[in-house]
Write a protein that binds this DNA or RNA. Sequence first.
RNA 1: GCGACCAUGGCGAAGUGGUUAACGCACCGGAUUGUGGCUCCGGCAUUCGUGGGUUCGAUUCCCACUGGUCGCCCCA
Length: 422
Amino acid sequence: MSYRVPRGTFDILPEEVKIWHWVEKQAQEICRRYQYQEIRTPMFEHTELFVRGVGDTTDIVEKEMYTFNDRGNRSLTLRPEGTAGVVRAFVEHKMYAGPLPTKLYYFGPMFRYERPQAGRYRQFHQFGIETFGSQDPAIDAEVIALGMQFLESLGLKGVKVEINTVATPEIRARYFDKLIEYFTPFKEELAKDAQNRLYRNPMRILDSKDPRTKEIAAGAPSILDFLDEECAGYFEKVKEYLDLLEIPYVVNDRLVRGLDYYTHTAFEFVADLSGAQASTVGGGGRYNGLVQEIGGPEMPGVGFGLGIDRIILALKEQKVDIPVQDQLDCYVVTIGDKAKLYSVKLLKTLREAGFVCERDYLDRKVKGQMKAADREKARFVAILGEEELEQGNINMKCLETGEQEQISLDAIVDYLSNKIQP
RNA sequence: GCGACCAUGGCGAAGUGGUUAACGCACCGGAUUGUGGCUCCGGCAUUCGUGGGUUCGAUUCCCACUGGUCGCCCCA
């Protein structure tokens, strides 16, 4: 075998696609109910958009982007996340001039250059929503509620919301100072990457997995102690709404998101999964400065991104039954050349009438055709031989009961309608 | 970028330094000529990831490479 998919990518084969269709359908339906409208943006954007939007100290920008120059020598990047592109479109098309809040959702592939492992790929898929224009904590809660309802609609069990506030840039700056102050005496004991982060983004040290760093971080000050009245009040309100919505959440003051644009609310959806990495199935938060950063007006926003690949992984691990409809109404079996010829027309008639039907294209004998019909789970087999054809009749056999009756060829649509429509 | 493990037919999976590389599933064909699901029979690897080496001889031993899986970092 000479060609393979590029590392970190995978084909979604027909059987799998059924699951994806179903998941997408749930997303669409939930969004419809919450009045979020789909937006489709390009899979690549100017590199600068992500550098500005996502943040140049983030891992995404520092080491994970698929960046290339096109023939016009423009630097482009395969989108590593969905928000930046949506915000760009929102600004570019001056959607802020329309009715607010603007509520959008997207579904599609994202790209990050990383070593693949369980639940992590170089091309992965996200379903995300973004809403612009509202500072009401109720909409933060709605965003979280939509995500939860989506996950529940899939039948995913044991999903928890972890929530935190990352306050405002000003408060965070003060908090950073305190963190640096706290961590500096331990500097030599911290994990190497934690040391590197100390002055650039000390909050990232908080969720380190290095044992010693963890111990040290356990004693670090909490951002919750630095909140001003407004931030604390906002956070309280969001939690109140979540209580009202009966959404199970835990406050995790160590929760740090990997993107720079968040303000106030930050949250993650965590599934009950064995693979440690992949248990975070999505995350999001509020990003009040982002629209302006991208060149738009001052405009608050909230959203989330959910990892569909991980969700499907979780569905499989939990052995969730996926409702798949792939029934075959009628398989047309023919005997002889004339019948075979006629079957082409018959298939067309049946399909126009709305039935799902199939026939043999491999010159199989009757037995082979019957086997195929059975394998493809046909409900009925229409058996057409030379004699029947001459008399204008056809045999209809129900595979489930084994019963067979001869009817007039002209009556086949009515016959199937009666038997199948339920 | 670092580490661990793995690499046999479409899939799953045994196996041995030496004439024909088990088995299961799937697929194809057959079991009196125009009828499925069960059963039975038959077919289905002439590079056992690639390239080197050790050896009289390697799929089985060694090395490199590639790929996969999982973990670290980080994230969805």
